[in-house]
Amino acid sequence: MSAIRQRASLLIRQARPQAVRNTRRYGSSHGHDHHHEHTVEEKLGTGFYLTAATLAGTWVVYKVSRPGKDGELSTFSKWLKEWADLHQTWETRNDLLAAAVEQAAQDKHLLLNAPRNRTHDLRFPEVFNTGSPFNVPAGHYVNIDKVVAHYQQQHLKEEERKAKKLAAAAQQ
């Protein structure tokens, strides 16, 4: 029976009107407004900027695609024509560059496969006449043409020996 009694008392409490309570406010009721309400500044969202950019972009595309006065090409058509001309210019440049590279390769092969000079040029034959230039009587320098010819012959013999050695290695 206690369960029935508890349930009945709960229903009676809920049925009674609640007493109105006066709550005390500590706000600005007496003119002492020390606390200001915080203002929240809401920024414009991403959607706003996307919408504005879409509208502006649509207007720009519309203006660019319209033909000019007196049947002129539209700005967009002019841009496309300039782009095609630029592409044509690059094609011409690339063709000229390819032709130059091919010519350089032909010249390189021509120079590498040309017959070589069989003589050995001395950079400065005066190397044989090094020595003190002081106290040398006039006409006492030796003619070095024979010495230059000797070393040229020695160089030719060395080149022939190398050529024979390469030919023998190629036959094996």
Score class of each variant (00 low, 15 high):
residue 32 H to S: 08
residue 33 D to F: 12
residue 34 H to E: 09
residue 34 H to C: 07
residue 35 H to S: 12
residue 36 H to G: 02
residue 36 H to D: 12
residue 38 H to R: 15
residue 41 E to T: 15
residue 42 E to L: 14
residue 42 E to T: 08
residue 43 K to W: 03
residue 44 L to Y: 09
residue 45 G to A: 07
residue 45 G to W: 02
residue 46 T to P: 11
residue 47 G to L: 04
residue 47 G to M: 01
residue 47 G to K: 10
residue 48 F to M: 05
residue 49 Y to S: 08
residue 49 Y to I: 03
residue 49 Y to D: 11
residue 50 L to P: 00
residue 50 L to G: 08
residue 50 L to Y: 04
residue 52 A to K: 14
residue 53 A to S: 08
residue 54 T to S: 06
residue 54 T to C: 01
residue 55 L to S: 10
residue 55 L to G: 04
residue 56 A to Q: 06
residue 56 A to L: 14
residue 56 A to Y: 05
residue 60 V to W: 05
residue 60 V to T: 04
residue 60 V to S: 02
residue 62 Y to S: 13
residue 62 Y to Q: 12
residue 64 V to R: 13
residue 64 V to Y: 15
residue 66 R to G: 00
residue 68 G to N: 03
residue 69 K to V: 01
residue 70 D to P: 02
residue 70 D to Y: 03
residue 71 G to L: 11
residue 71 G to R: 08
residue 74 S to Q: 00
residue 76 F to H: 08
residue 78 K to S: 04
residue 78 K to W: 04
residue 79 W to C: 06
residue 81 K to L: 00
residue 82 E to V: 07
residue 83 W to M: 06
residue 83 W to H: 05
residue 83 W to K: 00
residue 85 D to R: 03
residue 85 D to K: 03
residue 88 Q to I: 03
residue 88 Q to Y: 03
residue 90 W to L: 15
residue 90 W to K: 09
residue 91 E to V: 14
residue 91 E to C: 09
residue 91 E to D: 12
residue 92 T to D: 07
residue 93 R to N: 12
residue 93 R to Q: 11
residue 93 R to G: 04
residue 93 R to Y: 05
residue 93 R to K: 09
residue 94 N to G: 10
residue 94 N to T: 15
residue 94 N to C: 13
residue 96 L to I: 10
residue 96 L to M: 10
